[in-house]
């Protein structure tokens, strides 16, 4: 009897410690780092595709400031100049090249074909999906704009990679944790512009207050240009202006719904479907039980 109780006690204690251990790690602080947002104080970058000449100085500057090693790349045969093609733990900035229009002998040399380049990186969303889904509170939105992360906290689950609308956070195979653009917060803190912005020779990248950036975007829209990042997924701190649609660069269309809105929409619909399906299953089970009873009754009556 005593042995029984002690074994039970042991298992209970083991179970309890499993629950309590993570809290004990840091007292009662569960590490919630709620995004703080004062639009006026937020910094932003406007990326103007119509000004970009595709020199990739921004891509190089990013490597330089963040001490990111070079990547082994190859020129692809399909005339693709985007290189490397994807974000990676050591490539946080990509200049996307796109040749627009179809080649036509008659119009050759008259501007029928044109190149457009888009300097792309983490958009530093106002309501970041990555921050919202991270189980470890390893990512957070700083009140002045940058979306940052803490490698000490990252559990390496990859959820942010999947939830980010642009798949920005990428896995480092040695750290087994994510890495991504930090908007050069360590330069911002010293009163400097992000590294990529500082080297752009054509001012295709411009650093300013978020409110101002949104005004610039509104003016561009009024002039018939396309914008990206003003409303998408609730708005971002990097706002893009272009004379060609953003789908040309492979950027997906997104509504204004934030990650939290997206989640609750799915949850509500799932709950609705669940009630319906649950009801259907219960009805089917009941029908089956009744039929079975009827058959058994028949059988036993027939048997006798």
């Amino acid at each position: 009897m005593t042995e029984k109780i002690s074994r039970k006690d042991f298992l209970m204690a083991a179970g309890a410690s499993l629950v309590v251990a993570p809290m004990a790690l840091e007292g009662l602080d569960r590490g919630q780092r709620a995004p703080v947002q004062h639009l006026g104080e937020q910094k932003a970058v406007v990326v103007d595709v119509t000004r970009c000449i595709g020199c990739k100085a921004c891509q190089i500057a990013c490597k330089g400031w963040n001490k990111l090693p070079a990547e082994k790349t190859e020129i692809s045969r399909d005339g693709e100049f985007t290189n490397p093609k994807f974000f990676s733990p050591i490539t946080w900035k990509i200049v996307r090249f796109k040749e627009i229009g179809d080649y036509d002998e008659d119009t050759a040399g008259t501007g029928g074909l044109k190149w457009r380049m888009l300097s792309d990186n983490c958009k530093h969303c106002l309501e970041p999906s990555c921050v919202s889904v991270c189980p470890a509170a390893a990512l957070w939105k700083r009140s002045d704009g940058p979306v940052l992360y803490d490698l000490d906290r990252c559990v390496g689950c990859g959820y942010c990679t999947m939830a980010c609308p642009w798949g920005v956070p990428r896995f480092d195979d040695e750290l087994h944790a994510i890495r991504k653009c930090t908007m050069c917060f360590d330069r911002i803190d010293q009163g400097l512009e992000p590294s990529c912005v500082s080297v752009c020779p054509t001012d295709a990248l411009q650093y300013m207050n978020l409110e101002e950036a949104r005004r610039v975007a509104a003016d561009a829209e009024a002039n018939g240009l396309y914008t990206y990042g003003v409303d998408e997924v609730g708005g971002t701190s990097w706002i893009y202006i272009s004379d060609v649609p953003f789908s040309e660069f492979g950027l997906p269309e997104y509504s204004t719904v934030t990650q939290k809105g997206y989640e609750s929409d799915i949850l509500m619909k799932f709950a609705g479907a669940g009630l319906f399906v649950g009801g259907a299953i219960l009805a089917a089970v009941k029908l089956y039980a009744e039929r079975r009873e009827a058959i058994m009754k028949n059988d036993s009556e027939g048997g006798n």
């Binding site: 590490g31 889904v133 189980p135 689950c157």
Partner: peptide
Amino acid sequence: MVEPLSFLNAFRQFPGSMI
């Protein structure tokens, strides 16, 4: 393999994060 106890951090963001 890098941070042996890091997985405990996955308990932090309840109920905000589905994981």
